[in-house]
Design a protein around this nucleic acid. Structure first.
Lengths: 200, 200
DNA sequence: CTCATTATATACCGCTCGATATGGAAGCAG
DNA sequence: CTGCTTCCATATCGAGCGGTATATAATGAG
């Protein structure tokens, strides 16, 4: 894609590692809460290096968001491939729980953190995150629609309603994880959600 | 409580109305997202007047939080006084829904917005909000404990688990309301939660 | 009236923000 | 080696932040 420079001084840092470090900062502090000083210190590089490699703060965030979707939200695809609605729900809940309560990563969910209101500087960031969340929502909605046709539910449900219901639980998990709840406590929330799940 | 000044120039603005306006700004932009310029413009007063009347930005936020609890979270008390766990849940869900999707108020929940991660300037604000949230949580937990003793559930449940489960749904409602979901969509989430509720 | 007291209005403070200009160090082509 | 390119380090930019000093206007006490 991008031509490798054959001349000039080579980079002294690993772009992937730096982006990973930036992701962790955004994840724990949000877009506006993460200052360039926070970012450069965590990434181990200087400001000009950051701007040369990633463009600016907003572009860096988008690339961090790409990384987040690619690595941390990888569980969504296999979860949607489960054979029943309840199995889908279980995999989504367990995946979100693992993602939100990792020992070596920040608590909570980057998307939930970044989509809560903040200053107007972050409005376009908010829009970007909401747009990406909607895409995942639509995939989930299609899966639930199929599950209804396949008779996975034992009560009458609307696809949109059950989709947004489980999304709400997942978002609540993220909020509580960010607020400091332990994995054991959140595991019980997951178990409860599955215990009341209306179908197979 | 406070002695009325008998001398000096009288105030030209209504303190309660100004605080109400400040609450709306914090509610829609969060603590750090709300600048003093945003606040003073919405309140219709100047900076020195704000500092004379409320102390500083943090003190203003705490007073706005008091107002929020007193007026916008007033539904919690009556909800917990309902006779069955399901009625409690219904009143909490409907109250939260009304609070999060009012036509004349910002979307979402001030507590959820303020407890999501941001810069370190807001750390003590976060702690304050989390502390207050825990108090409400404890009231709710005690009510659920009583409901279990009274046989309101038709599956085996732990009080802490069901409490945090419903809290998660409520928080998810707030996140979705802040993200722009309509009241009709969120009403269906409420209905779904009640439809799968395990007991009376 | 005068005087003390309090509120408002304007301008400004130091600080941090995101973003850059500048100069030198490090590499490859010839 | 020279010449060119790219990266790193330092210092700095203008803007906005929370907060305030100062001066003026408006009231009641005497």
């Amino acid at each position: 894609m991008e031509a490798v420079a054959t001349r000039g001084r080579p980079r002294e840092f690993d772009v992937d590692k730096a982006l990973s470090a930036a992701l962790r900062v955004f994840w724990s502090k949000g877009y506006e809460g993460a200052s360039l000083t926070d970012l450069t210190e965590a990434m181990g590089i200087t400001r000009p290096s950051l701007y040369a490699a990633f463009g600016n703060k907003e572009a860096l965030f988008r690339q961090a968001l790409d990384l987040y979707e690619r690595e941390k939200l990888a569980y969504v695809g296999p979860a949607l491939a489960q054979p029943t609605a309840k199995a889908v729900a279980r995999h989504l809940l367990e995946g979100a729980l693992a993602n939100c309560t990792s020992d070596c990563e920040p608590g909570g969910c980057l998307a939930v953190i970044s989509s809560t209101a903040c200053g107007q500087e972050a409005e376009c960031i908010r829009a970007e995150v909401l747009s990406r969340s909607r895409k995942i929502h639509d995939l989930f909605l299609a899966r639930v629609t199929r599950a209804i046709e396949e008779g996975d539910f034992n009560i009458p449900v609307e696809a949109e309603a059950i989709t947004k219901y489980l999304t709400a639980v997942l978002q609540g998990l993220a909020v509580q994880a960010g607020a400091g709840s332990t994995r054991e406590e959140l595991q019980r929330v997951v178990d409860t959600t599955l215990a009341v799940w209306p179908g197979r």
